[in-house]
């Protein structure tokens, strides 16, 4: 059993009200409940108010070529994740 990896899930997120769910990527989880938790941690860094769908990748029927992933912007809740948080001394280029 340990050789068998947990199933792949495709993750869709509605970042804000008024937007539709968008595919953001995929992850592995043994079941839907964990997939949802992992999706929240990985793809939204638990930003509040977002809606997440997880779909077993095996349940998706695709025409060719498909779009299997995309990546969206990091959450806003941890300010130090954003580069502008750091004080860069005047005159430093390329940082």
């Amino acid at each position: 059993m340990s050789k068998e990896q947990s199933p792949l899930w495709e993750v869709f997120v509605r970042a804000r009200r008024g937007l539709s769910h968008t595919h953001v990527g995929s992850l592995h989880a043994p079941d839907a409940e964990l997939a949802l938790r992992n999706a929240r941690d990985l793809y939204t860094r638990r930003q509040e108010g977002v809606s997440i769908w997880v779909v077993p990748a095996s349940a998706i029927t695709a025409s060719s070529p498909d779009e299997k992933d995309a990546f969206f912007d990091p959450a806003a809740d941890k300010v130090y994740r954003h580069p502008t948080f750091y004080q860069v001394p005047d005159g430093v280029a390329h940082l």
Partner: peptide, 13 residues
């Protein structure tokens, strides 16, 4: 599992 690494770090944070 790598996903759990991220979850535990979130809780620690």
């Amino acid at each position: 599992e790598m996903e759990e690494d991220i979850a535990l770090a979130n809780i620690a944070l």
